[in-house]
Write a protein that binds this DNA or RNA. Structure first.
Length: 210
DNA sequence: ACATTAATTGTGT
DNA sequence: ACACAATTAATGT
């Protein structure tokens, strides 16, 4: 675990802190589709992503899900940090998008480090900042973009976080993330295929260019 | 290898 | 949005 730790976070945290994370943190693995945390839950530890992709979702009264943003290695959940400090219930659902490995840090420690380590404080503030920007981005996209543009953004994001030109999953799953119907997604994807931007297959999509 | 079935994707209204 | 058609993958024989 220490090797992965230094590779990912070595440039951000000082030696001393890395060692403490190594000592305190617990590795946990989640498989595709597994929930790391759900709406209404209290949070007792915060995850540091080591590998894989996680998505953060919001749910409306009707049970419809909406994708807020993706997280990948080197990220952590900004919501978690706020929630655990205030002992507040989670407002979001967090689901493993691919098989994922995380380091769990107990709340108490993460608060302690906040005052003890400059680099930790910066890290927390930084991720909070970038997450907020991501969030504003998706707010914009929902408010101002039409479905076809939202889908495009979704595909781009997914390529970025997974580092792969191939997107696995069904049209239905994409529809859930975007909170629309499967038919709409299928039609738009078909258009993109005709424009030679993607190649469609059952259960996966190859991206040619966006 | 073939037939059957289930799941995913495509299309017209 | 719905219904149905077409296609593909998975499974059993």
């Amino acid at each position: 675990m220490f090797k992965e730790l230094t590779e990912l976070y070595g440039h951000i945290f000082e030696e001393e802190l890395l060692e403490e994370i190594n000592r305190i943190g617990v590795i946990r693995e989640f498989t595709d589709g597994e929930k790391l945390m759900d709406i209404g839950q209290y949070i007792k530890s915060m995850p540091l992503l080591v590998s894989g992709v996680i998505k953060v979702l919001r749910e409306d009264k009707g049970g419809n899900e909406l994708l807020l943003y993706f997280l990948h290695d080197g990220d952590t959940c900004a919501m978690t940090m706020v929630c655990c400090v205030g002992q507040i219930k989670s407002e979001v659902r967090v689901v493993a998008e691919t098989d994922t490995k995380v380091i769990m840090i107990p709340v108490a420690k993460m608060e302690e480090w906040l005052t003890a380590y400059q680099s930790w404080r910066n890290f927390v503030l930084n991720t909070y900042h970038t997450r907020l920007n991501e969030l504003l981005d998706t707010v914009d996209s929902i408010a101002f973009l039409k479905m076809d543009e939202r889908l495009l953004k979704y595909l781009k994001d997914k390529i970025k976080v997974t580092n792969s030109k191939v997107i696995y999953g069904t049209h239905q799953e994409i529809a859930y993330d975007l909170n629309t119907s499967r038919v709409v997604v299928s039609r738009l994807l078909k258009k993109l295929e005709n424009m030679e931007k993607v190649k469609l297959h059952r259960n996966y999509i190859k991206v040619i260019s966006l």
